[in-house]
Design a protein around this nucleic acid. Sequence first.
DNA 1: AAACCTCCCTGGGGGC
DNA 2: TGCCCCCAGGGAGGTT
Length: 285
Amino acid sequence: MPELPEVETTRRGIEPWARGQTITGIEVRNPSLRWPVEAPDVLLGQRIDAVNRRGKYLLFHSSAGHLIVHLGMSGSLRVVSQDTALLKHDHFDLRLSVDARQGAKDQFLRLNDPRRFGCVLFHAGDNVDDHWLLKNLGVEPLSNDFHGDYLFARTRGRKVAIKNLIMDSKVVVGVGNIYAAEALFLAGIRPAVAAQRLTRAAAENLADAIKRVLSDAIRQGGTTLRDFVGSDGKPGYFKQRLNVYGRENKPCRVCECLLKLKTIGQRSSVYCPNCQTGQGFSPVV
DNA sequence: AAACCTCCCTGGGGGC
DNA sequence: TGCCCCCAGGGAGGTT
């Protein structure tokens, strides 16, 4: 389930290798992802200048345009060689070469996505942020634009559950179901509480918790970077120590009372009824 | 505008 | 053991 930390870990694994390489081939084995795959021939011969991330979108920049890749919920990218056997659900390849280097073998950036919720789209304009998928996105959670004051302001007048609000990509990008639940636990806030009921202090705690849980996960992801390049296995997504997600009816790691499960906005949400009082006091974990 | 619902897809797990 | 059903997930797009 790639959330922002997994996408960033993927980016860091691929970027140093892909930057400066030339696209020498495009293979679309299954064009029916979330939207029909867009990978026009104008990309052939183009050099990849950089690999960036916006929310959960990976952006491959070239002077001819930008390739926008989303991993959906089951997607992964890996770097393989010519003779690497195809796996089921290997839908898309970008063939890359360090052309001039003697004896260099072409390699492939290969997208695997069993559930096909991901996408590969192309943006021809100069500024990829103008793309319809990106232009309305909210702030990056790990940037200086995201802080308690910003979150507090965005919660004013909003009756929606705070968990839904922090998962709203128009407010802040990259916070999925797992990290939303974990951040609310760290901040001591009940997931179903109306966003507008948060105090400024609670919003401060929550913004800090979101930054903490995401950056901790990225830090752990760093240990598996080697798995993204030169491996024919799946990227080894790190195992986060989860406090609440998937732990309903198990004892809270802080107070040992049983964690509760509640469906909020069609998403399962686990919380500790004792630690998460809605007041925003942080349990020490 | 905000809130709420539906849909896309497949693999994995639980129940029988 | 095998089958069926249900669930998980991001996020666009529709409806209220």
